[in-house]
Design a binder for these strands. Structure first.
Lengths: 197, 197
DNA sequence: TCACAAAATTGGTCACTGTTCAATTAGTTT
DNA sequence: AAACTAATTGAACAGTGACCAATTTTGTGA
């Protein structure tokens, strides 16, 4: 089974992350098995430890890849957007989550085994994502201070996130159907208007 | 170990749910063990299956209890509130989550093994919680239609939820600290104002 | 009071998880 | 060619929840 020189270390990482993401998207975090990923990639369990350190390491690597793809998707949406860049951003947020709900949910449901914070390289990825949003908020509020922009960006991401989670978790279904994207967008617009946009 | 007549069926349920909630609040869903709950209550694993049907059944029962306590907390907050009932509601939402983060997070991170919807009796509990909010939104918007009220209530719960999740998951820490409760409240007030409150 | 049937409870077995680490194997150097 | 280094393996371990035959207790009817 060993295929020592077939792949370099980084090729191996990519191999595991790709197959891992496939399985995570298919089966969800609760039923995700590092053993199974290794098996389907043609390596043994032990290799996961060697390459990623632990189960957490593998999931982290997968989630980082998901975030990178998400960021790329948002940038694409913005590049293709017309005047209404805020709408493009909100829709991009939802699009991505809806397209691969289980992988997206895993971003939030995975926690370090020791309850510690995620490593810096991972947090940097998240910060990059936040940066994309902050840039757009800043553009929408030319008169606002950097402080205000960052603070509002966080709050608006939280707002959109809440609507997105409830949509995916089907929490909204309890009281009849409404378009969650439109509701999120309405809340965001109100907040920007109130801030002087 | 058997203690057949020590407890009726419903006493048994309460016993498991109480100890289960204690452990869930302490250790979180990922490390939660139905076996361990049974052991500490003085019964064997099998009894969990008998009483709750499965692992999912036990977690569901625990979560239902958490929701009931949450609803009671919100009612208490409203009863003790002055003029600003909306603020009381938002603060009550956060209070409860912050006081027992792991139990609260488990409400959202638990999914049925078959990915099906939660049973009706459970959904009814959730609906009750939503009802408390909807009542207050209705009071804040006397001129609004029932349709509008329900729709807005959902959106505002999603908004507050998003801020609360990011607070507990420490997502906000990435870009410096800001009071998430105040941000959530600001978003809610803007939305109510925009709706004519 | 006793025997018997019905219900509750147990705990071993199974298939699975991630972690660990001695043993093996392949690639590289001397 | 031999020695050395690093990668890779996979068996062992301590857990998990599901399952269910065997046991124990309870309540009922004789």
């Amino acid at each position: 089974m060993g295929r020592r020189s077939d792949h370099t270390r980084s090729e191996l990482e990519a191999l595991f992350v790709e197959e891992g993401r496939r399985q995570l998207a298919e089966v969800g975090l609760a039923r995700f098995s590092a053993r199974d990923v290794a098996k389907r990639v043609g390596y043994s369990i032990g290799t996961v430890s060697n390459v990623f350190g632990s189960y957490d390491g593998l999931v982290l690597a997968i989630n980082a890849r998901t975030i990178a793809l998400w960021a790329a998707h948002l940038r694409d949406c913005l590049a293709a957007a017309g005047d209404d860049r805020i709408a493009a951003l909100v829709r991009g947020y939802f699009d991505f989550a809806v397209a691969q709900p289980r992988a997206w949910i895993a971003l939030y449901e995975h926690h370090m085994a020791d309850d510690g914070p995620a490593p810096d390289w991972y947090q940097a990825q998240v910060a990059k994502l936040m940066g994309i949003v902050a840039t757009e908020i800043a553009a929408a509020l030319p008169a606002a201070s950097a402080e205000t922009v960052v603070s509002l960006a966080r709050s608006l991401v939280a707002t959109v996130h809440g609507h997105c989670v409830f949509h995916l978790y089907r929490t909204f279904d309890l009281l009849g159907e409404t378009a969650p994207v439109e509701a999120a967008l309405a809340r965001v617009r109100e907040a920007i208007a109130a801030a002087g946009g």
